[in-house]
Design a protein around this nucleic acid. Structure first.
Lengths: 207, 207
DNA sequence: CCCCCCATCTTGACAGTGAGCAGTTTACGG
DNA sequence: CCGTAAACTGCTCACTGTCAAGATGGGGGG
């Protein structure tokens, strides 16, 4: 992209209109139905009604398409985390809300959530993707400490609690989705195991 | 399988000898080199010096081969966890040792570790695999509580601390391997972030 | 002793995939 | 009104997983 100013409202009497967005949508559908392993770029193009090599022009190859999809997913997760209303809540309660939102996102977008943490498998290194991944931690940290302090540097010891919350919630989510935890429960993501685990975590109660 | 009694010491002047084990080994090599996404059953067979469809008889299809590989990986992880000498250590120290072992295993067998938690992507449901996955938690729990109590049922509230440790360590490991945490560190698995996070976790100090 | 059976492995073929390359259609700027 | 560059097409190539049918060899029944 860069200088194209026509993909927006031109409608669909173009060649196709805004193929990029349409491809992202159809790719999401395919990904949701077939999973990451069964994903096929050709099928995504097929569902968008274009030829098999049309995506080549917008995204370079399959990794490019999946990368764009993952980037969009990171953005959505960040938006949801930042959209939470945590004003006036105690730290413990803020953690619970954030964890619930994180788990809900994962449950509602399983294939997408899988993809997000599988990008190294595709040896994909896009700066924007790393940027969004970083934004996720910052959103989580801001929510945890009540929008207060500016998160300093990545290795600041003050970030340890945020990292711990993230790791615990993320680990629980992936293990539960994989069926390794609470395998009897048909919907392990909404049990009361995660809240119980979070009570074991000492979170500093900043005002 | 079931009644084959010749694959053991018969040597290699058979057709090939014990192809099953050879295939598992070459498959592990391919998996390590190319990663889960780039894995190819044909190449595994090629490296074992046999034809492309030789694996068909031992493992049904590609999922069968990867499943067997993952099962063996679970067993190795369990063995390592159970092989730790934790006698006379405080709970906090036991947790640290177990976490270190878990992280070491993941770092030394990255591709294998990835595969272990990706099996649902291959809609693979083998009873032995679930069994080994279960054994992992039990080993972790036994180590945590000092070989003392028999772990009761899966949903027993006494297991919550073990689940919490597992989730935290597992989440940290996957996030670190993915580059989401401590991305500056060339070897994030051996930093001091994980111990710092573990100190935030309240572990019951059973004798 | 021999021969047949069956597990094991090979060959060949099919459908489907990702990735390049040469050509064709279309909208826009001159 | 037309040239140009983007957008899109069909083609080819190498590769993959999976299947069906043919070779190969050892072990057990005759």
């Amino acid at each position: 992209m860069g200088g194209m100013g026509k993909e927006t409202a031109a409608g669909d009497h173009y060649h196709h209109g805004n193929l990029r967005a349409a491809l992202l949508d159809s790719a999401l559908v395919v990904l949701t139905e077939k999973g990451v392993a069964g994903f096929s770029m050709r099928e995504a193009a097929r569902r968008a009604g274009v030829s098999q090599s049309a995506p080549k022009h917008h995204f370079g190859d399959a990794r490019g398409l999946l990368g764009a999809l993952a980037t969009r997913a990171y953005r959505r997760l960040c938006d949801r985390l930042e959209g939470l209303d945590l004003a006036g809540l105690a730290a413990r309660e803020r953690v619970a809300r954030i964890a619930a939102e994180y788990v809900s996102f994962a449950g509602e977008n399983r294939a997408l959530f899988d993809l997000m943490w599988r990008m190294t498998q595709f040896d994909f290194t896009a700066p924007e993707l790393a940027e969004q991944k970083h934004r996720a931690l910052r959103a989580l940290d801001r929510g945890l400490r009540g929008e207060k302090a500016a998160p300093v540097h990545d290795t600041d010891p003050a970030l340890v609690p945020s990292y711990a919350v993230w790791a615990l919630v993320h680990g629980y989510t992936t293990l539960a989705l994989e069926g390794a935890i609470d395998s009897g429960n048909p919907d392990p993501l909404h049990g009361d195991l995660l809240p119980a685990m979070l009570t074991l975590l000492a979170v500093p109660d900043l005002p």
